[in-house]
Nucleic acid binder design. Structure first.
Lengths: 201, 201
DNA sequence: CGTCAATGTTAGCGCCGCTAACATTGGAAA
DNA sequence: TTTCCAATGTTAGCGGCGCTAACATTGACG
């Protein structure tokens, strides 16, 4: 199915367009893609892509969903070898920040896409949040975590991780040209700091 | 100078274009602006704007710089009535998050614009960072803040604030439709949490 | 074997960013 | 005051874009 080159019907156009767009966004950013260029790349007329994606926004939504699924996969992977819940949480923070450092354009696209947070992947994220909140309540019952609103604690943790990732993507002056390993160490250090508090009371 | 309407020369075109673009980005997002539409709005031919901005990127850079200056202004304002350094820091976090909630498209443009973090306003931000670090070291000398790397503490604080702002702009499921007052309370609660730590040790 | 839905094609509309060549004008220099 | 020129406007147009309509090809299925 991948080598059909002399037939009128391409046979695999939708996936080829999607993968090409995915690669192009990852390497050159979302502004680098155009429907016509994708069509040329696939060796197809400039109207053909519209048989598979109603408009450009829909195609970008699909790319964003693919990227979000990839991020999800990496987050799951990261917690595979973690026994307790705390190390799971920290591993996920690290994986999240690393993804942002390695694929800034995809990270950007994911969060700039309405349909991602609204759709299935938003629910995945919500499920993760509920897990985190359950963990926090557990910690509070055991007397390990102060009795603040668990929702607030979860939100603050998320915000810290998301903020680190965003500062990298947004090329914050202190964080531009951050390697993946440096990103890992930074995420570890920052989440540790959140746990112990910075003591500014 | 503002009412020249029947003359060949507009007389104030650069500023009019800039202000129109600023308003349009703020209300409808960066994708809503086009050079030709701006020209029409200003009652001028579609080539005229290029006498003042070499290309669209340069115009957007100028809008971003204006927006960043506005943000700077609000940050300065927010600390006016604060005596000690800690309340200054928290007031700035609140102002930062509020700006993001009230002007998401401008906030987005600021951070997506290379020239802003590279140029003058990046230096302003750096100066702010140095102030924060000085405050942290002071706190450490007084025994109020743990002996972690002051740079790291500063970075973590920034990341939390930036993360909250970004979650709002990115329409995080839990934070969409957040009012300015809710943003204020959230920022206060989260920075407080950072100070005390969430105790997940 | 015929037909039809899926999926390709060509042609073209209107908008865009941007440029070249020309027009107007206000203000500095003579 | 007159002259002239740099600044800043104009028109016309190129090529690329997103997208649509009308038509062409074909494989799968009755």
């Amino acid at each position: 199915m991948s080598g059909k080159q002399n037939s009128y019907h391409h046979g695999n156009l939708r996936e080829v367009l999607l993968e090409t767009a995915f690669r192009l966004v990852d390497s050159d950013g979302v502004e680098a893609i155009s429907m016509r260029a994708l069509a040329r790349e696939a060796g197809v007329s400039s109207a053909a892509p519209f048989r598979h994606f109603a408009d450009k926004r829909v195609l970008l939504d699909a790319v964003a969903e693919k990227a979000a699924a990839e991020l999800e996969r990496k987050l799951d992977e990261s917690t595979a070898a973690c026994s307790d819940a705390l190390t799971q949480f920290r591993a996920m923070s690290v994986a999240y920040v690393r993804f942002a450092a390695e694929h800034p354009a995809l990270f950007d696209l994911i969060h700039g896409t309405e349909s991602v947070s609204a759709g299935f992947l938003g629910e995945v994220k919500d499920e993760r949040r509920l897990n985190l909140i359950a963990l926090i309540i557990e910690g509070q019952n055991a007397g390990l975590i102060p009795e603040a609103d668990p929702e607030l604690i979860a939100l603050t943790s998320e915000a810290l991780t998301h903020g680190l990732a965003r500062m990298i993507v947004d090329r914050h002056p202190r964080l531009r040209t951050l390697s993946s390993e440096e990103a890992r160490q930074l995420a570890l250090a920052a989440t540790h700091l959140l746990q112990t508090g910075i003591g500014l009371t």
